[in-house]
Design a protein around this nucleic acid. Sequence first.
DNA 1: TCGTTCGCATTGACTGGACAATGCGTCGTG
DNA 2: CACGACGCATTGTCCAGTCAATGCGAACGA
Lengths: 251, 251
Amino acid sequence: MYQQIRDALRQQIADGTLSAGAQLPTEAALTAQYDVGRATVRQALGELVNEGLVVPMRPRGYFVKERRPMVFRPQAEFRKRPYSAEMDAFVTEHSADGREPRQLIEVAIVEPAADIAKRLHLEPGELAAVRRRIRWLDGEPFNVNDSYFPLDIVRDSEIMRPEDITRGANEVLAELGYRQVRALDELYVRMPTPDEANRLELGPGTPVAYHVCTGYTADARPVRVAVSVLPGDRHVISYERQWEQPQDGAE
Amino acid sequence: MYQQIRDALRQQIADGTLSAGAQLPTEAALTAQYDVGRATVRQALGELVNEGLVVPMRPRGYFVKERRPMVFRPQAEFRKRPYSAEMDAFVTEHSADGREPRQLIEVAIVEPAADIAKRLHLEPGELAAVRRRIRWLDGEPFNVNDSYFPLDIVRDSEIMRPEDITRGANEVLAELGYRQVRALDELYVRMPTPDEANRLELGPGTPVAYHVCTGYTADARPVRVAVSVLPGDRHVISYERQWEQPQDGAE
DNA sequence: TCGTTCGCATTGACTGGACAATGCGTCGTG
DNA sequence: CACGACGCATTGTCCAGTCAATGCGAACGA
């Protein structure tokens, strides 16, 4: 059965017989080795592909996938440096040293999708400004990040210009009188839409994290919704938490 | 081609022609409708299954998958009640009212896997206690959560007993003199291993979040590593963040 | 009326083929 | 030596069929 072939190959990948980047036997070789039809071999290989373990490089053969995750730290927006030694070590361990970053920023005025509008407390028809950003690393797309702002508060501000804002869009918002003091993060885990798979060049078997961050001012007004799509094989999402002495425990 | 069939069905799911829980046309119906071989239809349906959009309920047919995510809030361990009104609203929106929870706890002494041992600063061969917990909701497995503790600090404590600790394992740790003041969270997004897929009854096309939380005492000693496996179709992971007035912005 | 058995529609697994698409290397040519 | 054309190995797509597994409902029997 195809499960035997699949499990045998998976075992070889797990125990290192087939190391990262190595080529698997060809379909023809497996067909001969196990004496089955080609469809059976293809089903076995297909499942490994969907598990994200191997990648077909047509027409060169199947290869064991490599994984080099980079740290994605939502808290970095407002706290550049980690405050604990553990996080420091963790970030440097997964650093992008030697890889060449690139990004493209694009600004538009849109009527946001229903879920975005709801988080920004916008009525149907109200407009928002969106800064769309795509990031590359070594020429490969890494993640996309769209930040939405209510149009009436950022109109004519620096945020509408598609250049990199070195001091940060959040700082510009603060200068406009909308300093964020709180944020709510949501993380959804799912398979990518076909559109996302195209833009991020995702192979099958690569899930994504869909990260939505809503930032609030001191008077509880939402002024920013940042939506990120993070391919699972290229990211580790990380948070650091700290609390004061009298803690109320709960399992 | 199979892509046309796949895209047509996906469109019908997206625009509501096929609503959540509805049955898709059978393979035979699609074969006739598009005048193609059955393998072609199966490939189209297979891709939709791998995207997590439809579920095959053999032998009744294919059905549109339903998604009812529940909030997973890592911060709840140390802060039972959300501190912002937004989080309050968000949690109640995705509440589990009317669904029946159940859990099973199991305690063991193990030599932890290398990645766990590293986070706990254990030498190879040193032992750890692990509290393994599986949670169900309405009789369906929901998530698994394994908490590791260095054996030498929890030996003979309440943590070694496989009962529910109402005041929380963290509180017990604190009573033993190991109060946690900091934690580092890591989130990996990937497809489940075959073992995870079995234990959590995951269909194909369901990715998981792999959540690792390491808790530290005031003198930076790691005393607890909690590993959770969260099926993507049943969870939203959520954090709330707050910061003090002088913020250092960074885009 | 209730319980059991059986048929049937449907998907799962598989065969053994065919032709198309594609990247790479080789060979030949200018 | 450089460049282009070609062949080839390999995967992608597809066909037409067979047999097995399975859950549901209908028919049947007590």
